[in-house]
Design a protein around this nucleic acid. Structure first.
Lengths: 134, 134
DNA sequence: CCGCATCCTGTTAGATACTG
DNA sequence: CAGTATCTAACAGGATGCGG
């Protein structure tokens, strides 16, 4: 966590071209949170309904329980994910998107859709680059 | 870099619910590339026109030259960014989006727009969470 | 001088073991 | 089951150097 965030507080109006580049800009911090390795996957999965911790862990291949815990805590802190503890034995914890989290639906979908649509072009580009560079 | 990527090569049809979760899935790899700390910012900036290395470095506050170099190389390899070296003194290297890179425009914009729209809600949620948890 | 490779160091992710 | 604690390995960031 950095010093208090203020995007347009320095007195001068920021150049619109720089909205996304100031390290202490709120938008940058949120963008870093949303666009990280695991958050997008969690959001995409929870968009279809609530899941338990272990279910998420199973679905997101390669995530460690530590990073899944950290990611979920961050998303909970940001108000995107709701954590529900059922006081039963064995314990049961459900994770679901909040209404705010659900507003990310379309954006995440379009990002994934783009990836699916263009994966072949990217694979080709990579092969070409690797052949060129070695 | 991991072993060769194949999303639907194991013989069985993948459950659609898992498109985004297999570590060896092509979509996952591309998503990890797009949704990293710097790539989105680079793409957003280059969407407005080509920029030199130093210009990007200056605009993206907090990026080290090493990570900017790495990020640009990855994006170049993926066919999203084109690198043009002008053999002059002092050297000049321009970076621009390829047509493929430009197709990411709308998606990136919607992601940034979402962040801008909801930053206040997120700030509130964070404050609430911090007050609750400490 | 700019772009970038290299080296070194601090942070962070991942594997493992343990607990309510 | 759903985490936390601890250790280690990998990676990001800063400094330096070098070629064009």
């Amino acid at each position: 966590m950095k010093s208090p965030t203020h995007c347009a507080v320095t007195g001068d109006d920021y150049d619109v071209l720089q909205w996304d580049t100031r390290e202490d800009c709120e938008v940058r911090q949120i963008l870093d949170r949303i666009a990280d390795k695991w958050s997008l996957l969690v959001i995409a999965l929870l968009d279809r309904g609530s899941l338990r911790f272990t279910e998420l862990r199973r679905e997101i291949d390669g995530v460690s329980q530590r990073m899944l815990t950290v990611t979920l805590r961050q998303l909970e802190r940001d108000g995107l994910v709701e954590r529900t503890v059922h006081p039963v034995v064995p314990p049961r914890v459900d994770y679901a998107l909040t209404p705010l989290g659900r507003t990310l639906h379309e954006t995440v979908r379009s990002l994934v859709a783009w990836t699916e649509t263009h994966q072949r072009e990217i694979a080709t580009a990579r092969a070409s680059y690797d052949a060129r560079v070695g």
